[in-house]
């Protein structure tokens, strides 16, 4: 169960350049990305907090769930965007559609992306806009979102849901199929057995 204060971020097409501007990408680690997350929305050119930005003001500065606009996470493949959101304390984004690479990156890092209809998203946006700080819960098991008496189902594919619930290590899990991978390779057409010239 994911539970927390929800903030509205209704902009459509929020891309990964906006989520994690490139000046924070010159790094060889996954750490230290919280400050970079939504940096140009959160801070002005003098690095001062923009008081009007939703995540800079109470109650949304406590938010751990976002309700977002269509096509969230579009653009670059940079997983830094997801790492940064997690480091900023975001556990879930509820939206109508997410870009594919962002969706897969989220799954690998425990960021839940429940998909809802535009109507449900708009109800949740209204709820999230309450200055009293609405709290909602996301139940991955039953695939439902609840806020008080309001309950709605959301979409999430089985594999993503299992990953989020179990927090599994995909790489190690997949290596359990090493035999199948070797068998597949043995049957590979020579044409596809590439050997890059060093």
């Amino acid at each position: 169960m994911i539970k927390g204060i929800v903030a509205p971020l209704p902009l459509a097409n929020v891309d990964t350049d906006v989520i994690m501007p490139k000046r924070f990408l010159i790094t060889i680690t996954r750490e230290g990305l919280a400050d970079g997350t939504f940096a140009d929305l959160r801070f002005d050119n003098a690095e001062q907090r923009r008081p009007e930005f939703v995540l800079n003001k109470p109650p949304w500065n406590q938010a751990t769930i976002l309700v977002v606009g269509d096509n969230f996470g579009c653009g670059s493949s940079r997983e830094h965007a997801v790492w940064g959101m997690r480091q900023l304390g975001i556990n879930a984004c509820i939206g109508t559609s997410f870009a594919g690479i962002f969706y897969d990156n989220a799954r690998k890092n425990g960021l839940a992306l429940p998909v809802v209809s535009p109507e449900v998203r708009d109800v949740l946006l209204q709820l999230a806009s309450k200055t009293s700080g609405a709290e909602i819960s996301i139940d991955l098991g039953s695939r439902t979102i609840a806020a008080g008496d309001y309950t709605e189902p959301f979409e999430m594919d089985d594999a993503t849901r299992t990953s989020l619930i179990r927090g599994r290590d995909d790489t190690l899990d997949s290596l359990e199929h090493a035999g199948a991978i070797r068998d597949f390779e043995a049957g590979l057409d020579d044409k596809m057995r590439i050997s890059v010239i060093t």
Binding site: T29, E79, D158, R161, S174, F184
Partner: peptide, 29 residues
């Protein structure tokens, strides 16, 4: 390569390209 539980499959990658900014954390992994 094979089906996995929960609807995913494993697919074989013939060729993989890397650049300097999205690969460092993969190598450390």
């Amino acid at each position: 390569v094979c089906d996995l539980p929960d609807g995913d499959m494993l697919i074989y990658v013939d060729f993989h390209i890397m650049n300097e900014y999205t690969s460092p954390q993969a190598f450390s992994g």
